[in-house]
């Protein structure tokens, strides 16, 4: 499903350039739950952003669903985001002006899903995450864990093939963190959603099926 071939990322610095990632070869099959680990500055977030088509690699080839995607127009990229990719962020990144319900519904709006189907999908997710009572609250009225639950629900609502999670539990205390990780594991096992997460925590990595370690931009 995902295949990286000699991917590198560098930024110009002074007269030369600074490498953040070097010669990454990586294949992720559908249904995997991969954790990317490594110390601060090792390039794991950059790798996730490249995988999630938020950043373009400087060198190498990236095939997503068997298509080369390292140079895509913004429109094509949006297409892929709409249909196949879900994101979960450390800082949740919910839209403050929208209620829980509306936050979850928004990806479907952009995808052009009909009203009745939107209703049933959002309702289903609210029910599954036990958030029906909170559907009309705004993000600022929720705890961090609950906000991240909404974040996950939003990432799932358009039924993506893969979810990219950037330290999804980084802002949460351990109890909430475990809850989110268990949810990820369940999604991976029962719903066959591919998950790629960046994490600092060894414990979180154990929920996954495979761990990739990065150091100074190299894969260990």
């Amino acid at each position: 499903m995902i295949k990286l071939n000699q991917i590198a990322k560098h930024y110009p610095a002074g007269f030369g350039k600074v490498y953040v990632l070097r010669q990454i070869d990586l294949t992720i099959q559908e249904g995997e739950f991969v954790s990317i680990m490594g110390p601060s500055g090792s390039g794991k977030s950059t790798l996730l952003h490249i995988l999630g088509l938020l950043e373009e690699p400087s060198e190498g080839e990236y095939r997503f669903l068997d298509e080369p995607v390292q140079k895509l127009s913004e429109k094509k990229r949006t297409e892929l985001h709409r249909h196949h990719i879900g994101f979960v962020f450390q800082a949740y990144h919910l839209i403050d002006e929208l209620t829980v319900y509306e936050n979850i519904e928004t990806p479907l709006l952009y995808k052009g899903v009909s009203g009745s189907e939107r209703k049933s999908r959002v309702a289903e997710l609210l029910d599954r995450f036990n958030m029906v009572a909170k559907k009309d609250l705004f993000p600022s009225q929720l705890s961090g864990g609950q906000q991240q639950l909404v974040g996950v629900a939003r990432a799932l609502v358009h039924q993506p093939k893969v979810i990219f999670a950037d330290e999804p539990t980084g802002n949460l205390h351990s109890e909430q963190a475990d809850e989110i990780m268990e949810l990820f594991q369940k999604l991976n096992k029962e719903d066959k959603v591919t998950i790629v997460q960046v994490t600092h925590s060894e414990k979180n990595a154990t929920y996954g099926t495979r761990t990739i370690r990065l150091k100074d931009g190299w894969m260990a």
Binding site: K75, T78, H93, P107, Y110, H158
Partner: peptide
Amino acid sequence: ANEVGVRKVIGATQAH
């Protein structure tokens, strides 16, 4: 800006 970023990630085009 953050709202714009989030919306783009969850599938909004510039036209949206």
